[in-house]
Design a protein around this nucleic acid. Sequence first.
DNA 1: AAGCCGGGGCT
DNA 2: AGCCCAGGCTT
Length: 316
Amino acid sequence: MLQQTRVDTVVPFYERFVSTFPTFEALAGASLRSVLKVWENLGYYSRARNLHKAAHVIVHEMNGEFPSSMKDLRNLPGIGPYIAAAISSIAFGQVVPAVDGNVKRVLARVFFIQDPSDDKDVKQQIQDIANVLVPKHDSGAFNQAVMELGAMICRPRNPRCRECPINKSCEAFDHGAQDSLPVLLKRHPIPHKEMTAGIMFNQKRQLLVVQRPNHGLLGGLWKFPGGERMEGDKDLAHTLRRSIREETGIHVRVGKTLHSVKHTYTHFRITLFAFQCSRRSGVPIPLDCQDVLWVKVGDLGQLPMSKADRKIWELL
DNA sequence: AAGCCGGGGCT
DNA sequence: AGCCCAGGCTT
């Protein structure tokens, strides 16, 4: 949960998650849908899918025993170098450094590393320094201490160097360069996309929703049918007719605009336009999606949806 | 090695 | 509007 996600954001999700799935057996036995529902709004949903898978591996392939070595931890889906090191050092007392974003920033400053910290060699250099620094005793506490120092004192912006317990050992502070380290690579500007969502009821006053493919953006979450405006679309109504046909095979008539919401993802922004829609012909089947479902508006709260789609639902 | 993957808070 | 968050997986 803590991957690229602030502790304060995670805490309520964590509490709800462990009370819903208190054991590996409970998590392994739960449906992916129920896991995604508890994860809803936390983002990076592959983490939820991987955690669900990992619980299954622990219960069915590891005799229900949680692994303690770096090597065995790395074999669980979703556990990479940082988490393997964090768990084995904090929970099992192994002498390994846990290098997260905080640690990289602290070490880049303390050791005055002026090359971009995203560079492969620089990452290795930081890892090498951490390997030397990690103490034989209480390495888990050391790891947490460096992370905490990075979060509270050696912050990305406006570091509190006067209050820093190790400022006398910090080369960046010596040079007065703490604000310009670590060096950032410039990022590409993110594109803007226009997205469409069809709000369509059947005679039973049920709403049509589709489930996204399990891999890719917002994998496994539910959405209103519709898609991105492409080159050849002459207007958004055209986009919506085309994308609903691709997703579900049905032909629709596009009515009036109901709402529009803006949302920012990691690599692009969207404006999502919701249109009233009616079915002209065909029966919805899962073509360019994983599943289709007619659902009562009130029951849509049970299905995991992204923030942008949830906003549309709330406006309805 | 680079791209992909969310949502939220701070500046 | 940009940046960053107790990163990992895929290609």
